[in-house]
């Protein structure tokens, strides 16, 4: 087939199909995934006792707000990564607030915690619940997001998938934090971060497989 013929054929169909934009699809995908995650949360986890009191403490509130913010920023970045040549904009700078805040919280907690309590608080008693739960609650959201991103055209599929994983993990971790009673940054600053990184890696792997086009 000659290139001019191909061009003539393609030109017969100039306007892209009318449909929801990438952003709308992503919002739908995340909302559907989040609905599943919230249902799982309601059925098997439920909010911690005295949730309201806990959220009025800034350090405990941070373990919900920081991942929530991370989820929003990373989701936005994943969408940008799905449009060839698009710039990442402000979100690419704002997202660094999260690791910076976590690092600051860790230093603060280390400094203010009596030496004898550091190790018990760091190890906590729920690592074996925390890590699988973050993964579990992330999966529906990640699935919905990846599905939407397939309509895009990421030129670095693994990176786009990793950002989707980071975003899904952020939202899922914010949800899980409402159940978790370990309020020391020595615990959540380390183990939440690890859970989020695991989902990010999973996202990169999925992106490499599912987001190529």
């Amino acid at each position: 087939m000659k290139t001019e013929d191909l061009i003539a054929t393609l030109a017969a169909d100039p306007a892209p199909a009318n449909g929801p934009s990438l952003e709308q699809r992503a919002v739908t995908g995340v909302a559907m995934g989040a609905a599943v995650s919230i249902a799982v949360f309601a059925a098997f986890y439920g909010p911690r006792p005295e949730l309201g009191d806990a959220l009025s403490d800034l350090v405990s509130l941070a373990k919900t707000l920081l991942p929530l913010f991370l989820g929003a920023m990373a989701g936005l970045l994943a969408l940008r990564a799905a449009r060839p040549g698009a710039s990442f904009g402000m979100a690419q700078r704002l997202v660094w607030i999260v690791p910076a805040a976590v690092a600051a919280l860790l230093v603060w907690a280390f400094a203010t915690t009596p030496a004898a309590q550091r190790l018990p608080l760091f190890v906590g008693h729920s690592i074996h619940v925390c890590l699988p739960s973050i993964l579990l609650l992330s999966l529906p959201i990640l699935g919905g997001l990846i599905r939407a991103l397939r309509q895009g055209a990421p030129v670095q599929p693994a990176r786009c998938g990793a950002l989707a994983g980071l975003g899904a993990a952020g939202l899922a971790t914010a949800l899980y934090s409402l159940f978790c009673v370990e309020d020391s940054p020595l615990f959540y600053g380390v183990w939440y971060s690890l859970g989020i990184l695991l989902v990010t890696a999973l996202g990169a792997y999925l992106g490499q497989r599912k987001l190529r086009w």
Binding site: P16, A17, G19, S21, L22, A82, R83, P84, G85, A86, Q151, G152, A153, V155, W213
Partner: peptide, 19 residues
């Protein structure tokens, strides 16, 4: 196939060359 991923407010050449 991917022309819907270009936003009319974005420059077109970076999009095109990236693809």
């Amino acid at each position: 196939a991917k022309r819907h991923t270009w936003r009319e407010t974005d420059p077109v050449t970076p999009w095109l060359y990236a693809i």
